[in-house]
Design a protein around this nucleic acid. Structure first.
Lengths: 292, 292
DNA sequence: CTGTTAGCGCATTCAG
DNA sequence: CTGAATGCGCTAACAG
């Protein structure tokens, strides 16, 4: 008791003895992206509530760096791992999972092994967004699909194509284009798309950052939004409501994504994963000025 | 060599033996704030380059939580600590510092002990912003100063008052008001200020989020920006260039703030802190539409 | 129920 | 220069 004179038990020694470190790993492509910043906040909050600390690792969209941080987290003996929007292929992912005690994937699915996933229903999200544009009378709708390796982007593409089909519209491959998931990526590809395909009257974007880039491209080309071309984003980051025109978008519960993930992870760590190994959260359409 | 069959040295055991864990602690008020997200990116990048992992801790602007995460980082035996925008008072800060091996403060100064600091020259920043408004002919300039405990806010206030004095203007206490450092805080206080002090023709804001809130308040009140009231922000987060009107603001090198901090910290850890224990980075005025 | 002891997996030291 | 012993600060299993 008299150890008030400055003593803290060593978590390191305890970790060695118990094989539990009280730490989690969180790997994301980029914390500066508002999407992942909110997920990180949710993860950190949930972890703190249960006495865990979390290692933050950025992969900077680089698979090699992702592999490297994953290895360092192995050495740190984290009790659990949150792998967010992994850019690894399925085989790599499988070995990573096998080398860690417990892992939960975010925005990604891995069949077979009993690894948990927390996802957004992106197919429905893509469908809702595209459907909105179709109902507004658009017939030539482009899809700026983000990174080719993005699982979310692929799911949204499914919804996009399904909505076109449901409306009896033809899917035009030239209207779907990959882009970097940031403002500059959206600006560049939207500019190119709008100049080479004059028939386009609507753009469905991978995320809000891409949509903001698309807005800029429209402005440069003198195309009015939403009169000449409608723009729909994804995520509903705070920025979406603040740009002009305000973005119509698909809201994703980012903080909840993080907190639910960490809850599932901690359940698995504590053995009480009640069979529930897959959580899917629903996106929600938010209609603003860019596509009324 | 044949340990290819899945073996990773235990960083835990190594940490126990060497008394160095290869981990750093990063404590920030809120990662979802774009300012701290960029700082975190800089810290993580620099740490990764030197083989360190970093624990991310949010204090959520709560001093008790700050103390709690600091304690948990002690137990984790981090090799170094980056304490960003601490909301602790000087006495608390001093004991925290004494209990950690090495720490570098960001946006905060602590005289006496040889603790390193990396800061923005916020007094100059406040001076530049206020000066710009004065030169544009404004005489009644309010200051929305953010949290009362913010060291940055206090420094910017000094620059604000100095610029007023330099121009022979009188400092009006009722024109300087604290607010939460987010959009809602700026909106609320700007609204109140503009309705109770009709003479105000310019608002200098603690950060860009507050400035965006001020923009919203102006819009609600039917005051045109910049014709009726000029607005200046701080930080130059990506959002600043994307709102309408685009924000005039004071750019802060956030990523560099993080990377320089971690470099200083690692130098101190390795004993080669070449006397350079205080780094101050310069802000830079960025003139856009909200205050030409 | 309190007090003692044997590892946890490394790095460091010392002897060979 | 290679190989075996000691201890880092805890927890868990054990004995008193």
């Amino acid at each position: 008791v008299i150890e008030r004179l400055g003593y803290r038990p060593s978590g390191i020694a305890r970790g060695l003895a118990t094989q539990r470190t009280g730490t989690l790993g969180l790997v994301v492509p980029d914390v500066a992206n508002p999407f992942f910043a909110d997920v990180a906040r949710g993860v950190e909050h949930g972890a703190y509530a249960e006495g865990y600390n979390v290692f933050l690792c950025n992969t900077e969209e680089d698979p090699d760096r992702e592999l490297a941080v994953l290895k360092s987290l192995e050495e740190k003996r984290v009790d659990g791992l949150v792998l967010c929007s992994s850019r690894l292929d399925e085989a790599e992912l499988r070995t990573v999972v096998s080398r860690h005690r417990t892992v939960v994937l975010v925005n990604r699915l891995l069949e077979g092994d009993g690894v948990g996933s927390v996802l957004i229903d992106d197919e429905t999200g893509g469908w809702l967004a595209t459907r909105l544009l179709i109902e507004a009378g658009h017939r030539a709708i482009a899809y700026l699909s983000g990174p080719a390796v993005s699982h979310s982007g692929q799911q949204r593409a499914k919804g996009y194509r399904a909505a076109l089909e449901d409306a009896g519209l033809y899917f035009e491959a030239a209207w779907a284009r990959h882009c970097s998931p940031m403002v500059a990526g959206g600006q560049e590809v939207a500019y190119d798309l709008l100049t080479t395909h004059q028939e386009l009257s609507a753009l469905f974007c991978y995320n809000d950052l891409v949509a903001v880039g698309a807005l800029q491209a429209c402005s440069e080309l003198g195309r009015r939004v939403p009169e000449d071309v409608a723009v729909v984003g994804y995520d509903d980051i705070p920025l979406a409501a603040l740009v002009t025109p305000a973005l119509t978008t698909c809201r994703v519960p980012r903080y909840e994504l993080g907190s639910q993930t960490v809850n599932l992870l901690l359940d698995q760590i504590n053995g009480c994963s009640g069979g529930c190994e897959q959580i899917v959260l629903a996106p929600e359409l938010v209609v603003r000025a860019s596509a009324p």
